[in-house]
Design a protein around this nucleic acid. Structure first.
Lengths: 373, 373
DNA sequence: CAGCGCACCGGAAACGTTTCCGATGCTGTC
DNA sequence: GACAGCATCGGAAACGTTTCCGGTGCGCTG
C-alpha cells in the first residue's frame, strides 16, 4: 500500500497526495477530502522510515537506563511511571521512544545505535557517572538529558528533584514533632541524590540550631542491610537519636528492623522517615513517612529540556534557545557547581543548559510521631 | 557522513562499501579491511531508516502496556525486569524496542503507529481483554504476543506463567505445614492470572482431600483494602481458616493488616501467602511467603514466540513454523479453550501458535508456619 | 483584450541505503 | 591460444516519501 497506489486510485499525483495527507495548503478542499477518505478506506499508513529519510528527522528519542543498575543499585524506584511520563510528554511533539540499554555491545554501544537510528536525543536514567560510555556519548553531539546525574555539556543537561529541599523538609517535620536528636543514614555519596540529601540534612539541622554531631551521620548503600546496621550503630551511641532520616526507603525499613529487634517502638520511641516513596513504603507497618518524588513531573521536565536542546541545535544560528518554555516546572535553582564561564548572551559557543529542578513532597504516614520526653 | 563519502574517500563504489560493511562475499580482504578502517576512522554509522527502507524490514518491535493500568489495576509488578528481559532477548536477533502506549490517539492508536513504523511485531502486557483496540490490532495482521492475556489469532499468541501450578504449590506448602482450613482471596476473575490462580487453588485443595468450602473463597481486586476486608469476613466465619492464600501480594498485606487488628499472630495463628513477589513482599514484617514469577524467563519466552510468529510469516509458504525452537521454556500445556479446528498439517490457513508457559517458584519467608493445634 | 496574480496540481529530484546485473581482469584447462 | 570460470568491482534501479520548481487554468484589473 503505497502513496503511489493512493495517488493512482484517486487520480492525482503523489505530490498532491502527500500534500493532502500532511495537510499542506496548495490542495483544494475537494481533492483533499477525497484523498483522505480514500486513504483511510484503503488503510494506508505512510512509511515512517521513508518519511524520516527525506525529512532528515527521525522523531525518535532514546531512553536508556543501566540494566546493571538492577544488580548494583537495586531497582529504580519509579522507572515505570517515568516511562509513561516520558511517553506522554514526547507524544505531545509527535516523538516516539526507543529503548536502549547500557549492555549494547562495545564501549560506545548505545551511542552507536543512537546515531544509526538518527535519534534526536537521549534520556538517560539510573546510570552512574563513572560509566565510560557516558563520556563517549557526551562528545558524540547527540543531545541528551540525564535524570539524577549531573551531566554537563554543550548539548547535555540534567533534571533532578530537589533532594536538598526534600531532605530539609523531612528534618523540619521531625523537628516540628519535637525531635532534637535527629540522625541520618545516607546513601552512596558518589550518587548526586544521596549527596544532596545529606546536604539538605546538614543545612536543615544547622539552620534549626541543632548541634553538629558527626556520629549522627551514618553511611549506607541504599540497601536494607546497611540501614539495619547503621541503626544498630546509632542505637549503641551514648546518646542515641530519637529520630532518623534515611536517604532511601529500603534503608528506612532496615532501620525499623533494627529498632524492632532492639525492642524500640516506632514511632513511640524513635521516628523514622525514608525517601522515594516506593510501593513498599505504604505497605510496611508502621507505614513509612517518606518524601516522594513526582515521576510524571520529572519526566515532563526532562522531555521539555531535551526538546529545548534539540530545538536550539536545529536553529540556524540561534542562541541558547528559550523558546517553548516549561509548563510549570520549578525554576532553575541552586545548580551543581560549575556553570560558570561565558553566559553573557548569544555567544558563539553554546552554553550548557541550566538543569531543571522539580519539587518533592513529604508524605506523612505512621512511622513518625512526637518525640518522647 | 554518507556511505558515498566513505566510497569517495576510499576510492571504491558505494556498492563495494555496502558489501564490505555488511561483510558480504564479493569483496577482497584488502579492500574490505581498508574500508572498515576508514569507516570507523570517519565515525560513519549507516542510516537505519534508509537501510530499513530498502531491505523492507525495520528490525523494530513495539512493546506496549496499558498506561491506564496504572490507575485501574495498580502498577505492573515487575515491568522493569520484563523490559530488560525483552531488550536483551530481542538484541540477540538485532532488533530494537519501541515504546507504545495505549493512550495513542484514536481507537486503533497503537495499531496505526505500529504500521507506520513497520514494526515487525508487538509485545503487549498489562492490557485488559476488553480493550477495543485489541480487536483492531488482531485483524491488522501485525504479529503480536501478549503477556498474561489469552490472545488468540493466526499471528497472535501469548505467554504466561504457570499460575495454576503456582497456586497449587502455595496450597501444597500450607498443607505440608499441617494446615487443613485454607482459604483464598482471589483477584478479578476476568483477568486470566486471577482465574488461573483460583483454578490452581481449587484443584489443589480437592486433590489434597480438603473439603470444598465455598465460604473460603473470597473475591478481591488485587488492592490492599480488598484483602483486608476479605480477611475480616473470613475471620468472622464460624470456622475461620488457619491459612490464607492471596492471589496478590498487596491483598496479602491487607489480610495481614486485618489479622493484626484482630490480634492474631502471623504466622503463629494464621499463615499468609501472596503472589508475585513484589518488592514489598521482602520488606513487610513478617516477610511474605509468596510465589514469584521469573520476569526474564517470561520475557525470553515472549520474545521467542514473537520471533517465531514473525519468521513463519516471512517464510514463502511455510507451515506453522517450528523452526528456532524455544530455549528451555516449558512445553505447551493446558491452553485456553478454543484451539480447535483444522490442525492436521500445513493447511492454507495458518494455525494459531501454542501459548508458552513458564514455571513459577515458591519463595518461603516468614509469613507461613506450622498450623496451630 | 492583454497581462498579472493566484489557486491548484505534476514532474522529478532528492534522502541514504541495498542489491541485481553486467563488466573486467585473471587463472586455468583442453 | 581460445574459452570457461572465478573473484572482484561499478552502475543503476529500487525502497517510499517530501519538496522544489514549474505549469496550467482562472478571475480580475487596467
Amino acid at each position: 500500500m503505497d502513496i503511489r497506489e493512493v495517488a493512482r486510485l484517486s487520480g492525482v499525483s503523489v505530490a498532491t497526495v502527500s500534500r493532502a495527507l500532511n495537510d499542506r495548503p496548495d490542495v483544494s478542499r475537494a481533492t483533499r477530502d477525497r484523498i483522505l477518505a480514500l486513504a483511510t478506506e484503503l488503510g494506508y499508513e505512510p512509511n515512517h522510515q521513508a518519511r524520516a529519510l527525506v525529512r532528515r528527522r527521525s522523531d525518535l528519542v532514546g531512553v536508556i537506563w543501566d540494566t546493571g543498575y538492577l544488580s548494583t543499585r537495586g531497582r529504580h524506584p519509579f522507572l515505570q511511571d517515568l516511562l509513561v511520563g516520558l511517553k506522554t510528554a514526547f507524544a505531545a511533539s509527535g516523538r516516539h521512544l526507543m529503548l536502549l540499554s547500557t549492555t549494547e555491545s562495545g564501549v560506545d554501544g548505545y551511542t552507536r545505535v543512537a546515531r544509526q537510528h538518527r535519534l534526536e536525543g537521549l534520556i538517560l536514567m539510573g546510570v552512574d557517572e563513572g560509566q565510560p560510555a557516558i563520556t563517549a556519548l557526551l562528545d558524540s553531539a547527540v543531545p541528551c538529558v540525564a535524570l539524577d546525574l549531573p551531566l554537563h555539556g554543550a548539548r547535555a543537561g540534567y533534571v533532578t528533584s530537589d533532594n536538598r529541599a526534600g531532605a530539609a523538609a523531612a528534618v523540619a517535620h521531625l523537628h516540628g514533632l519535637g525531635h532534637r536528636r535527629i540522625a541520618t543514614i545516607c546513601g552512596p555519596l558518589d550518587l548526586m541524590p544521596a549527596a544532596e540529601r545529606l546536604a539538605g540534612y546538614r543545612y536543615s539541622t544547622a539552620r534549626l540550631g541543632l548541634p553538629h554531631r558527626p556520629e549522627y551521620i551514618e553511611h549506607g548503600d541504599f540497601f536494607l542491610a546497611s540501614g539495619r546496621e547503621s541503626m544498630c550503630r546509632l542505637l549503641a551511641l551514648p546518646q542515641p537519636p530519637t529520630a532518623v532520616f534515611a536517604a532511601g526507603d529500603e534503608m528506612a525499613v532496615g532501620a525499623m528492623d533494627a529498632l524492632a529487634e532492639a525492642g524500640m517502638d516506632v514511632p513511640g520511641q524513635v521516628s523514622v522517615v525514608g525517601y522515594d516513596d516506593v510501593e513498599a513504603a505504604a505497605l510496611v507497618r508502621p507505614a513509612l513517612t517518606t518524601v516522594a518524588q513526582d515521576p510524571l513531573q520529572l519526566a515532563a521536565a526532562a522531555a521539555d529540556l531535551l526538546a529545548e536542546i534539540i530545538a536550539a541545535g536545529s536553529e540556524p544560528d540561534g542562541p541558547h534557545g528559550d523558546g517553548p518554555g516549561g509548563a510549570d516546572s520549578g525554576g532553575a535553582d541552586s545548580g551543581g557547581a560549575d556553570s560558570g564561564g561565558a553566559d553573557s548572551g548569544d555567544e558563539e559557543a553554546p552554553v550548557a543548559p541550566a538543569p531543571r529542578l522539580v519539587p518533592n513532597r513529604l508524605v506523612i504516614r505512621a512511622s513518625t510521631g512526637p518525640a518522647p520526653r
